[in-house]
Structure formats: C-alpha cells, structure tokens
Amino acid sequence: MASTSAETGRAEATLRDVANAHQPPEWGRWLLWAFVLFVAAEFAWIVARNPNFGWPIVGQWFTEASILRGLGVTLGLTVVAMTLGTALGLVLAVARMSQDRLFSSLSGLFIWFFRGTPLLVQLIFWYNLSTLFPEIVLKLPFGPVLASWNTNDLITPMTAAIAGLSLNEAAYMAEIIRGGLLSVDKGQVEATDAFGMTRTRALRRVIIPQAMRSIVPPTGNQLISMIKATSLVSVIAMADLLYSVQNVYNRTFEVIPMLMVAVIWYLIITSILNVVQGFIERYYARGERGAGSADKAPIRVEEPA
C-alpha cells in the first residue's frame, strides 16, 4: 500500500514537473503573421510595379557624383555639428549644475534662447549676420584694433550651417547630458570626493561613464534628427543631399524619383546608426546584472622588475 502510493507520488511528480510542459500551438498568431506578411508583400509589389515611382531613374541617379557629394556634405555636417554640439553641450550641462550662480544662469540663458527659437530662423540669422554686423573687429578695450574681418568673408554657407546646427544642438544636448548626470547616485560623487579626485577626473572616470546609460538613447535620437535637420541648410544654398536632389529635379522635373533617392539614402544612414547605437548601449551596460559575458578576461599582473 505504502509502496504503491510512493510510486503514484513519483509518477505524479514527473507528470506535474513544469520542465516537461509543452506549449499548445498558437494558430491565431500564425494566421496573423501570414496575413501581415501577405499585406506587406502586396504593398511592396504595388510600389515596385508603379511606373510613377520611376525606379529606373532612381537606380540611375542613386550613385551619381553630385548626389554622392551631397551625401558627403550631409554626413560631414552631421558629424561636425553633432561633435561640436555635444562638446559644448557637456560644458553647458556642467555649468548649469554648478554651484556658481554666474555659470548656471549663463548656461540657462543659452539653453533658453537656442531651444526657444526655430532652427530654420537661427540658420537664416547666421547666414545674414553681415546685415547686423558688417564687420567683426578684435580690439583691446579703449585700445588699438588687433584684427578685423569683413563678416561676408567669414560667413559662408558652410560656417553659417555649422554655427547654426551646432549651437542649436548644444542646447538640446546640454539638457540630455544634465539629465544623465543627475541620474548617477549621489554616493558615487561622494566616493570620488572622499578619494580626493579632481572634479574633471571624477566626471571623466566615474560620473560620465555611469551617466552614459541614460545619455546614449536620447542622443541616438538627436543624431537621427540632426541628419534630417541638416536638410534645412538647403535654404542657405548649402549643397547637402536634399539640395543636390532638388538641383536635379529642378532641371529634369523627376521630383518623386529624385526624392526617393534622398529618402533611401536617409534610411540607409539611420539604419546603420541604429546598429551602432545598439553596440554602444551594450558597452555602457557592462557591470549591470545580466549584461552579456560576466567576467572580463583575467588581468595578469607581473611582478615589477
């Protein structure tokens, strides 16, 4: 009697063991998948077959020299404006959080102005700076003139575009970076203080690496909007990707195919950036629970000779 109950007990334990459970097939989900794929394929087919998209023309112009030059300008402007914007944004963020009233209010004023006005207006202002200040003069107060420039020589479409884009970007990046710095535990700052680290070293080695976890995702967002924001510079005659395709369709009137060329290039760049962002996020997640490989390759320390 006892042995049979033990046996049924064991049988039940095997039967009830969740390790042996199997999942019933989810027919509804398969059906939904099939339907969605069908609709997507159908849509792609319609777009591909529609002669109004002018796919042969897209193919013909896709890697044309002037388009590639425009693409180069777009990428170059993005990299330069984003780099300057981030660097200046970091300075602004640190100044904004400073105990010093002067620094924090100056930084606040900058952010208020450059976030508060449209980028397009800022670009046009920079481009037309010479109407406000025809000459830029460097001189000592009440002293001799050291150097002077004609503003029109100084402000080319290129410098106006870089100034406009990076100053605007700096204001947004400052707020993103400030948010990241605030997300770091107060105890970390205290530890760096207690060890007598300088403020810059503490930021570089301890605070910023931890803040990066919350800085990277919105920065990826900013970078992608920056790539598209560079298309605004076409209003100040800067030959970026959009300006280049506009140049072509103003001659050939193939508006849609040429815009498709630009759209596909923009999509390719943003896709690559998405992948890169994924790698960067994984890098800064190290030390987090469940973040990839647990241990680093062990460090071998040789005895000092």
Partner: peptide, 21 residues
C-alpha cells in the same frame, strides 16, 4: 581634494564604482 588623499573612507552603501571590476 589634496588634503583628503591621506584619508581612506568606507561608506554604509559601499559606493563602489559599478562600471569597474
């Protein structure tokens, strides 16, 4: 900061740098 460099401190919440081994 220089004065603090000869003093070691251990905190209630450890405050180890989480991104370093």
């Amino acid at each position: 900061a220089v004065q603090r460099r000869k003093i070691g401190m251990v905190f209630q919440q450890f405050n180890l740098y989480p991104h370093m081994t």
